[in-house]
Design a protein around this nucleic acid. Structure first.
Length: 667
DNA sequence: TGGGGTGATATTTTT
DNA sequence: TATCACCCCA
């Protein structure tokens, strides 16, 4: 990759902390990868001491790939390119003693955390489990702001926050007892440790000779704190980001961290990358015009030496169904005229549910499509169950895993037995698993229940032992065999097809474990393997998707970082984009950034659609065009489709004419 | 009284 | 597609 002047100066700047303000499509990842190469080759910094952080596994994977293509995998060896969470995990693993966790600790994903919370709430408040999600969100945002349970308690003034804070205290104690951490702890615990222990802090600061951060605008407070701790007085830091693409404020991202950099690092150098290599002039003009309506800390204007290209189109349609039909037929005829392939098109929308109508229309037109952001592999019940089995094998104190699978498949251990066991365990302050072995238990449960429990726990012991003694993946396979899991899945699926799918997922999971185990020299124990998996997602999926010739359907959020020659941005309506809750909250700027992200995904041509009515709460409601459309340069927009009034007959004629047209073209 | 079945309803998502 | 609320039946 050939760098322009600005990019080159960003790569070579080493005199202090650097903020690279990288507009959409300005080659920001290239700057990071080139800088890593530069640090190793020209500055002689050991690869082992360079850390680059991203937010997603995919971004980390791509970055690794690009660096090793550039340098050769030999020179790139030892580089630490990972997500924030993976780095956090690494710190925790190495500092277990300071943190007083045992080395077989579990990582809970959001669903595990929620079920822990639901349990706690059942005990503490009776039955308000419906609110578990809200409390979970509150705890997560506390942790993201480095607020400890005790601080949360003292800060909360209203009753509801007070309640949430008390649940936070309980929750954290329970995690400890389970020897488990949640996702937020992966950042929170390292930061707390680095803050409080000077020796540890210095050790880690010495490990990091240079730190690079991608998508900096997405950092939350705890991540920013981690960055500051690691950088230390050396100030060897490059962050790359674009405040105009900050679309995750609702998740705790703090775009103002961009501003804080200025205060926290007085010598901060700012380099702007404003040349765009992606989009036509018309698209850039639209992007610049719309985002100029936001307040800015750092001003920037994208430009390009590509031609102006085609005007942007706005198509008004009747309703949801008509919108999907229009997009499908526009896409068909465009593809035919320009001899393009399907994967050059993307349909972007605000909410996942909007995809339904498009899926239906695309199927009717026989257009292959791929929907991203569907159910992840790890949310399938059979995968979750199996992961719980493996977790319990590794960490017998993981009560969340125990509860999930103790009676799946059926082992005649019913709810009342579990309750008695839980009571017994909580009085003795031991885990459910440990309680199964206590002699005193027989006074509390029936003889039959006791023998079921003992059979189960004995079986877990055997599985655990096997995992320690023999190959971990073999041990998992043996465990699956010994409980006849496949048979159970067959018997408990609605259809043959569903059973096949589930069994397939089980194989996919074990194959995947095998692959990870084969690929890494460091991670050998089952304990490491399972933690690794919780943080990762199945790689193959993404790769498969980009290979196939499919139209891409996704949310505007999911589209960040991607680009497509031809883009349809649908549902350009008040209430949808900007979303009505954002209008109510007054957070229009974030919605505008979302529109900006959408617009800047397009390379050659961009089409907006909007319906004049949409079904809302079962009622057909008239719809206003999105305010963002009126912010776009007027002479740059071509309005098509329905006028103000809807004449169904005329519409039908038009549709038929279009179909005839299409038939002509296809011969 | 509780659980399962049905129908309506929809911000955005990663780790 | 998933969740949630509501209703009905046991």
């Amino acid at each position: 990759m050939k760098l322009n002047k600005k990019q080159l100066s960003a790569v070579r700047y080493l005199d202090g902390p650097l903020l690279v303000l990288a507009g959409a499509g300005s080659g920001k990842t290239g700057v990071i990868t080139n800088k890593i190469a530069y640090l190793i080759v020209e500055c002689g910094i050991s690869a082992k001491r360079i850390v680059a952080l991203t937010f997603t596994n995919k971004a980390a994977r791509e970055m690794k790939e690009r660096v090793s293509n550039q340098l050769g995998s030999k020179k790139a060896r030892g580089l630490h390119i990972s997500t924030f969470h993976t780095l956090g995990l690494k710190i925790i693993r190495q500092e277990l003693k300071q943190l007083s966790y045992k080395k077989n600790f579990s990582i809970f994903d959001s669903e595990d955390s929620r079920s822990v919370l639901t349990e706690i709430m059942k005990v503490e408040l009776g039955d308000e489990s419906g609110k578990a999600q809200e409390v979970q969100w509150a705890i997560s945002s506390w942790k993201g702001q480095l607020v400890s349970p005790e601080q949360a308690l003292s800060q909360s003034d209203d009753a509801q926050a007070q309640m949430a804070a008390q649940l936070y205290v309980r929750y954290q104690a329970v995690l400890r007892a389970y020897n488990a951490v949640d996702f937020d702890d992966l950042i929170y615990l390292p930061v707390e440790l680095l803050r409080s222990n000077l020796e540890v802090l210095e050790r880690w600061q010495n490990k990091v000779a240079y730190l690079l951060i991608d998508e900096y605008q997405d950092t939350n407070s705890s991540q920013y704190e981690l960055i500051k701790m690691l950088v230390g007085p050396r100030l060897a830091l490059t962050v790359v980001g674009d405040d105009d693409q900050s679309i995750y404020a609702w998740r705790g991202a703090r775009p103002e961290n961009m501003k804080h950099l200025n205060d926290d690092f007085p010598g901060l150098k700012v380099i702007k990358l404003e040349q765009n290599y992606r989009s036509s002039g018309a698209i850039l003009k639209a992007a610049n015009t719309i985002i100029a309506n936001n307040e800015h800390v750092f001003e920037k204007t994208l430009w390009s030496d590509r031609g102006f290209g085609e005007s942007l189109r706005v198509i008004r349609v009747k309703d949801e169904t008509h919108e999907a039909d229009t997009v499908a037929s526009e896409l068909m005829s465009h593809r035919f005229k320009h001899r393009t392939s399907y994967n050059e098109y993307a349909i972007l929308y605000r909410g996942n549910y909007q995809s339904r109508a498009f899926e239906k229309a695309l199927r009717e037109y026989n257009i292959p499509y791929h929907l991203s952001g569907g159910t992840s592999f790890f949310s399938y019940t059979e995968v979750k169950d199996l992961m719980a089995y493996v977790r319990l094998m590794v960490n017998n104190d993981d009560d969340a895993a125990f509860l999930r699978i103790v009676n799946t498949p059926r082992r005649d251990i019913g709810a009342s037995t579990i309750e008695k066991l839980a009571n017994y365990a909580s009085i003795r302050e031991i885990s459910l698993f440990a309680a199964c072995f206590e002699l005193g238990l027989e006074q509390h449960v029936s003889k039959r229940a006791l023998s079921s429990l003992q059979r189960f726990s004995q079986w877990v012991v055997e599985s655990s032992d096997r995992a320690l003694r023999s190959d971990p993946v073999d041990a998992v396979k043996e465990m699956i065999r010994s409980m006849d899991y496949e048979m159970w899945l067959r018997d408990n699926s609605a259809t043959e097809k569903a059973a096949e799918r589930k069994i397939n997922n089980v194989y996919e999971l074990t194959d995947w474990m095998q692959r990870i185990s084969d690929n890494s020299e460091a991670e050998k124990s089952l304990s490491d393997l399972v933690r690794h998996m919780v943080l990762m997602d199945i790689l193959e999926r993404n790769e498969e998707d980009s290979k196939g010739d499919h139209v891409q359907l996704m949310t505007l959020h999911a589209a960040k970082g991607l680009e497509f020659p031809y883009v349809f941005m649908v549902g350009m309506e008040e209430g949808l984009l900007p979303h009505r809750t954002s209008i109510a909250e007054g957070s229009i700027e974030e919605e505008r950034r979302l529109a900006y992200v959408g617009i800047t995904r397009a390379q050659k041509n961009l089409t907006f659609t909007l319906a004049s009515k949409r079904k809302q709460q079962g009622e057909w409601t008239a719809i206003e065009p999105s305010r963002f459309l009126s912010e776009l340069p007027e002479d740059n927009l071509m309005w098509e489709g329905l006028g103000v009034e809807v004449n169904p007959e005329q519409q039908q004629e038009k549709g038929q004419a279009h179909l005839a047209n299409l038939r002509d073209m296809l011969g």
